[in-house]
């Protein structure tokens, strides 16, 4: 699943280059749902349309997660710009996420 968002009304520090992310979730698990909501809010505020997000349900593609080195869900993997980074959990710690995405508040 790939999502690309654009929000002209976004505020706060914005990433200079397009951020490529993969969010690994488990169907509609409570933390997975929460992680999607938290990430959407962060993207709307800080990335505008400057990102590419792929959401992978590990119940459907478990091997894909393993191949990417993911062992728990929800997990967010930032693939670009380098260096890569991974945030584990429901992304409720916003600063942790921004730091992983390379966005300085």
């Amino acid at each position: 699943m790939v999502r690309k968002k654009k929000d002209p009304g976004a505020s706060g520090p914005v990433a200079a280059t397009a951020v490529v992310m993969v969010l690994y979730i488990t169907d509609s698990g409570p933390n997975s749902v929460r992680a999607v909501a938290n990430l959407e809010a962060i993207c709307k505020e800080h990335l505008q349309d400057n990102f590419r997000l792929e959401i992978i349900d590990v119940l459907q593609y478990p091997l894909r997660a393993l191949a990417d080195g993911i062992v728990v869900t929800p997990s967010l993997a930032k693939l670009f710009p380098l260096p890569t980074a991974t945030v584990v959990g429901n992304l409720s710690d916003k600063s942790d996420v921004l730091r992983a995405l390379g966005i300085v508040e």
Partner: peptide, 24 residues
């Protein structure tokens, strides 16, 4: 990994993928 363990402890994890079997 430490972050994974912390997340599990915090109750922020839904599932674990068994690296050996690939099962969720």
């Amino acid at each position: 990994g430490g972050p994974e363990r912390l997340a599990i402890e915090a109750g922020q994890i839904d599932a674990i993928i068994d690296p050996e079997s690939g099962k969720v």
